[in-house]
Structure formats: structure tokens, C-alpha cells
Design a protein around this nucleic acid. Sequence first.
DNA 1: AATTATTACTTGCAATTCGCAAGTGAAATG
DNA 2: CATTTCACTTGCGAATTGCAAGTAATAATT
Lengths: 143, 143
Amino acid sequence: MLRNKTSAKRRSGCPLNASVEMLGDRWSLLIIRDMMLQGFRSYKEFMQCYEGIATNILADRLRKLTEYGIIASEPDPSDGRKLIYFLTAKGIDLAPVLTEMVLWAAAHEDTGNQALVRQMREDKEKLLVGIRQRWAARHSLAT
Amino acid sequence: MLRNKTSAKRRSGCPLNASVEMLGDRWSLLIIRDMMLQGFRSYKEFMQCYEGIATNILADRLRKLTEYGIIASEPDPSDGRKLIYFLTAKGIDLAPVLTEMVLWAAAHEDTGNQALVRQMREDKEKLLVGIRQRWAARHSLAT
DNA sequence: AATTATTACTTGCAATTCGCAAGTGAAATG
DNA sequence: CATTTCACTTGCGAATTGCAAGTAATAATT
């Protein structure tokens, strides 16, 4: 049925368990990254970007991330078909996690986007402040 | 067949793709955490610790983490049946990623292990140095 | 106003992956 | 030498995923 079943299993252990439960799959972190850095906001943008993600899985991940309070959505006022997805404060707080993951991969694998990596290495804090500021500017109205 | 199929798909994009490919599942990060913080080294220790992990999945994850160069193993000199698993330098470099994930979850969920969380918040750098030092001490011989 | 297109999904089904129980082989223990 | 321990593998039913084909609501076009 592809829905959550509130398995109380790894609850209340090390905090990492909670993170892995929410983020430990092939797509969630990529969705969050692209909302944070690419400004993705709609189902269609995600769908076009990731070759390979199944439509039902994208819908399921967006639903779960919403349940976890990492993202939220509202109807697009200028187009009633669209939903606009955005990161919540909890979601934007994942910026340091993503940063460390990017730096780790860049240090140990051949990867692209050297510009971003260089920026992260040179001034991690400044980048994080920038991400937060851009987010806050967009969400000065919504919660 | 439960083995890798070198899908060259998300290769060479953002470095995060590489991280998610290696770590984006329900168990890998937990295995790494427990090697890093709990000193786990054998199949049996992992098996006993995680209720819910299937034996074949544990074997598969250990194999993949080895292929990725995040962990390595060697026969136990004092018991020929055992393999000793240990983190490589690449593996120990995941410490900042784990730290940020723990801090994020602790900030946004009810989680346990407050002692660790407090230590991380109070002096992240010192903790990371400590983890590295303990690791280096154990691996002064092996690569 | 009626037709077509777009958007965000759901549904159905085959294929893959996972969880669990039961092996297996090699080495240690008694 | 029999038994136990350890690190797995195998088999199988169940859950999850990928893909193709809908669907319902709104928007754009004719």
C-alpha cells in the first residue's frame, strides 16, 4: 500500500535512527537538495529532473516528507493545477547535513559541480547563512 | 541476485548523488555509526544489535560498503572463523556527516542519547578529533 | 463553448528487494 | 571426534519499486 505504518521499532534510540528513518532512501535527500539549491517547487520539476524516479515513488516521498514536517505545500495562486512545495524550517536545517555529505563525496569520489564544492570548502558557514537567508526571504509570509 | 549492477546513471552529477548511492538505505549509516562510536567489528555484533536486519541484507551491506571502500576487513588472527571489519579513512571521514544528522534529529525529534548530543553541541570539533584519534590509534598498522 | 493539453497524481502489474527460517562449511571448543 | 560457533547462503513469501496506463481538475487553444 506504500504508506507509512508507524513502526515504533527504532524509535527513541540514537538520534541517527530517526534521521535514517526519514531520509534513508534513494530519493529524499535529492529532493531536499534540489529544493534547497535549485529552487525546485513543483512535482513536474522533480519528475523531469530525475530520470529513473517512478511517479508513485515521487508522490510517496513528497507525502512522507510532508508527514515528517520537512516540506509543506500550498496551491499555486497563479495556476490552480499546481502545488507549490517548499522546505519548512526543519527542512532547511538539513543544510549542514547535505553540505557534509557533498564535501565527503567530493573528497573521495570523482564528482561534478566543482564550483559548489569549492564554495563549501572555502566558507562553509557563509554558504549556510546564504541558504538560510534566501529561504527566509521567500518565506517571510508563510510560516 | 542482490548484487550491484554498476548503474552509471547518477554518476558524475552533484556529489550528493554519489553519497546517496552509497549511503541511501536503511542500514548503511547505522552500521558505520556503530563501527565508529560503539567499536563494532564483527558480523555477530551487528546481527545482535539491530533487531530487524535480515542476515542476507547485513551480508550485502557489508559487501557493498567494502566495495565502496568505506570499510574493509581482515581475518581475526585469534579466531580463523571471524572477520574483523574496520572503517577505512574514507569511512572515518563520514564522522561530520553523522554528527550533523544526529544534531538535526536531536533538534527536531524526541530522541535518546542526550549525553552524546550534548557533547556534539558543545564541542563538535573536539569530538571529531577524538573519533579520528581513536581510529588512528587502532589502525596505526593497517592502511 | 468545446476540445485539447497540462499537472499532479493513482492504479495495476511485473520485477526487484527484503525479512525470516533453515541450511552450509569451516574453524574452535569440549 | 562430536558439538558449537561464526559468517555467511539459500529458498520462499511478503513488501517495495519501476513502468505504463489511467484519472480528475484546471488551463490553454480553437
